[in-house]
Computed example of a mutant assay.
Amino acid sequence: MKANSHFLYRQSDMACSKIFSGNLPELLYEIIQNFRKDLSTLYSCILVNRLWCRLAIPLLWEDPFSVPAHHYRCIATYLCFLNEDNKAKLIEYGISNNVLSSNTLFNYPSFIKNLDTNKIRRSIIYWMRALLDITDDMIGYLVYRSLFEVFIENEGNLHTFEIYQ
């Protein structure tokens, strides 16, 4: 038993030396990766400090359309990354400039890993109903196309891409 406790002491001593030698971000990265599918824990992580936030945000934004009814708000964030011409087109169709302008802390489109065209379409419908109080196919198509332009321009690195007709 004594040898076993000595081993545990050495392990914790090595972990402490890693922390104090500057390896905390790497260790924390490994820990936070374990919460990849636990969205509520990731949301809590972003509130701890800047380091935790920088590590958790990419995980939260890698599959933003996974629950369309709850995550449709990410659409407005993505639309902030549109160029001025595309923003002007959306404004022509009645989308408020307030929806399209916001300061963002991260390049959220670059974090996307999983895209499912059916989930994006459903999210756009929820977004239009909830925030714009409209359901216009032309606006929906324009937002859909604009989102893909944002993902391409911001060099999102996809792992999965599902297309439905």
Rank of each mutant, 00 (worst) to 15 (best):
N154K: 11
L100S: 07
I134F: 00
M138V: 04
C80T: 15
E26R: 15
T135Q: 13
N118C: 07
D63G: 02
Y29H: 11
T104D: 10
R129M: 13
Y164S: 13
P58C: 04
E84C: 02
N107F: 01
W61T: 04
N103Q: 11
F7E: 12
L42D: 00
N98I: 12
N49R: 07
F151W: 14
F106Y: 06
K18G: 09
L79G: 07
I31F: 15
W52H: 10
K18D: 14
V67Q: 11
G94H: 00
K89L: 09
L90N: 07
C45H: 08
I31Y: 14
K113Y: 03
I152W: 11
V150K: 06
R73Q: 13
K37Y: 14
K87I: 10
F161C: 11
S44V: 06
I19R: 02
D116A: 05
L55W: 03
V150Q: 03
N4R: 09
S101A: 03
D63H: 09
L24K: 10
Y141T: 13
V67P: 05
Y164I: 08
E162V: 11
E92V: 11
I32S: 10
E30Y: 11
F65C: 04
N4P: 00
T77M: 10
L60I: 14
M1Q: 11
W52S: 06
M138A: 10
R121E: 12
F148D: 01
I95H: 00
D133H: 11
L115N: 04
Q11F: 02
S110V: 01
M1S: 15
L90S: 05
Y141K: 12
E162D: 12
D137Q: 03
Y29P: 08
L158P: 06
H159P: 00
I152V: 14
C74V: 14
W127E: 09
N114M: 06
K87T: 02
V150H: 07
A130D: 10
F111C: 02
C45F: 14
I120S: 05
L42V: 00
Y108I: 05
S96P: 06
Y144V: 02
L47G: 03
N118I: 08
R50L: 01
G140D: 07
Q33D: 09
H159C: 14
R36F: 01
K2M: 10
C74K: 05
A56M: 13
S101W: 12
H71V: 05
Y78R: 01
R145E: 15
T135F: 10
L79C: 02
G22P: 09
L105Y: 10
E62H: 14
D13E: 15
D85Y: 15
I19N: 02
C45Q: 11
P25C: 08
I31K: 15
N157I: 05
Y29L: 14
N83S: 12
F161K: 04
L60D: 10
I163P: 04
Y144T: 01
G156L: 01
L51M: 08
Y126M: 12
F20W: 13
K18F: 14
S110M: 03
R122P: 00
A69H: 15
Y141H: 08
I112T: 04
P25S: 04
P25F: 10
L59S: 01
L28M: 12
N83R: 06
L100Y: 02
A3G: 00
N49G: 02
Y9V: 08
N83T: 11
F161W: 07
M138K: 05
L27S: 03
N107D: 05
M14P: 00
V99T: 15
E162W: 11
L100W: 03
L39G: 05
H70D: 11
R54Q: 10
N103Y: 12
